[in-house]
Write a protein that binds this DNA or RNA. Structure first.
Length: 220
DNA sequence: AAAAGTACCAACCGCCGGTAG
DNA sequence: ACTACCGGCGGTTGGTACTTT
């Protein structure tokens, strides 16, 4: 099909129905075949996106819970903008949803967070001196571009160790990467319950240099 | 009541890695 | 070994609803 033949823009209920019928018949995948099989004038990418972000069974349509917000905050602190990775630990949520949520709720608070950077990286300085160095060397424009400082290895390992020892965080162990995402999410949820009950969550967020308003939401 | 500003979210775009031929 | 294709990912845009002035 010619490139210019593809339809764009919002999906209609009829298109959704066609796509759902296709997936019911053929399963997920082979997105490029959807058009030829169903007559749908959408390219494979568009079909996949529509299915993954909107039509897929099990998707949660309600607002993110405080627990889910907490997980997003924490995992974003660990991994940065790895939306699909973060989404794996939030069953029923899509990377797009998490990405939008982050940009809407936290990106706008960048100035506040930046004000907190001194404390944040002072806290981190003991274990991540290279991060502080980067903060000190970066220009203001560079700082604007970076929502967070990426916690790549080996700092991740250090943070994992700290977190593990202080808060018994389930994903602080090395084997967590091998776990089934669903099991992982349950572990995270259990851990959040624990730290919330203990009051440790508040301290943990504080140590991460998060705004009090965010803490308040998480603590509710 | 209307205009302007803001928040939210669905969808598109470009890039990249994996893989089949 | 090379190439073309496909799917996945993160960044960005545009439309709509809501709020503020």
């Amino acid at each position: 099909m010619a490139e210019e033949g593809w339809r764009k823009g919002p999906w209609t209920p009829a298109e959704d129905k066609l796509l759902m019928e296709y997936v019911a018949l053929h399963g997920e995948g082979r997105w490029s075949s959807v058009a030829s099989s169903t007559g749908l004038k959408r390219n494979g990418k568009s079909c996949r996106l529509r299915w993954v972000n909107y039509l897929r069974p099990g998707l949660k349509k309600d607002q993110l819970s405080p627990q889910e917000e907490g997980i997003i905050i924490e995992l974003h602190a660990l991994w940065g903008n790895k939306w699909s990775t973060i989404a794996r630990y939030l069953p029923g949520r899509t990377d797009n949803e998490i990405k939008n949520y982050w940009r809407t709720h936290f990106k706008k608070q960048k100035p506040i967070i930046q004000n907190e950077k001194k404390r944040k990286y002072s806290y981190m300085n003991q274990e991540y001196p290279h991060v502080n160095e980067r903060m000190n060397n970066s220009t203001s424009s560079e700082s604007e571009e970076n929502d967070t400082i990426m916690m790549t290895e080996p700092p991740l390992t250090s943070l994992q160790e700290t977190t593990k020892s202080n808060y018994a965080c389930p994903w602080a162990t090395g084997e967590v990467q091998q776990q089934n995402p669903c099991m992982m999410a349950q572990d995270v949820a259990r851990w959040l319950d624990t730290v919330t009950e203990d009051g440790l969550w508040s301290d943990f967020l504080w140590n991460l240099g998060l705004d009090h308003s965010i803490q308040a939401v998480v603590e509710q």
